[in-house]
Amino acid sequence: MSLNTLRPYLMVAPSLIIFLLFFIYPIFYMIYLSFTSWNLISPDKTFVGVANYVELFQSQDFRQVFFNTVIYTVLTVFLSLTVALLLALWLNKSSAIYGIVQGAIFSPYIISLVSVSLLWMWMMDPQYGLLNWVLNLFHLPPSPWLTHTDTALLSLVVVGVWKIVGYNALVFIAGLQSIPKDLYEAAALDEASQWATFARITLPMLSPTLFFLLVVNTIASFQVFDTVQIMTQGGPVNSTNMLVYYIYEYGFDFFKIGYASAAGVVLLVIVGVMTVFHFRFMAKRVHYR
């Protein structure tokens, strides 16, 4: 074979070796491990069939963890998208002041989740926290925030929304700006009401953006970890334990590698299904262009 035939393969090889070693192969390794029992110390991995999956689906804890993850995801995605859309409609103006506000709402997105977690943990302190002072200002009773099973998961939702809503809003603004102006001119000529203009032009034209954000936010929220690990360690009494933290705990604290891998496969399937949606949609969008 001549160098010319080989050349493109040599060019893509470094990247593809990395992808195969650290992204593709680990998936298969994890699936294999999920059918074994292994405590990390013993040299033997015992084949146990689907025992890990049976244990997983019978576990009360796992059911709660799964439920927590779904609740967290639905709330975070719904709230952050709704608020972001409202903010985008409001802030989509060209004068400088709106640019400053856009920068402000975006800033949490580029800050490490470590900082965000520590900062909100401090503001949510039930005794000396700023948030209870704000509640007090409006004559509302103080909240136990992260320290009570009723409020801990919701507190994490608040942090998740605060972190991502600015990103979502700016993506919505980019979407709004790509809607052709003549559509609005035509609507104005027809004397369409503001609501009709929104429902008949803005919303449909924005639906690709909305769908993109829906998928991306859902996948990201499903993998929430940093806030859980730093702010609550899954507590109190498992009320904020979610999938990735659960896998991490079983792998690194309890050394039940097979069981943790089975939970990992469940996450893989969920993210995989959402990714297929994402790809279908992307293919469609490319097609229509």
């Binding site: 035939t5 493109p8 393969y9 893509v12 990247s15 593809l16 992808f19 195969l20 650290f22 992204f23 593709i24 680990p26 998936i27 390794y29 994890m30 491990l33 990390l40 996948i219 993998q223 970890f225 990735v244 896998i247 991490y248 792998g251 590698i257 943790a260 891998s261 990992g264 996450l267 893989l268 993210v271 990714t275 994402h278 790809f279």
Partner: peptide, 28 residues
């Protein structure tokens, strides 16, 4: 080049696989 589509597909697959899924096997 032959296999270009397949190799690019692998690249896109890597794009879609988050570290939160691969961390345990990669650590091992």
């Amino acid at each position: 080049f032959p296999g270009r589509g397949f190799l690019f597909g692998l690249t896109m697959a890597a794009l879609m696989i988050p570290p939160q899924i691969t961390f345990l096997p990669v650590f091992l």
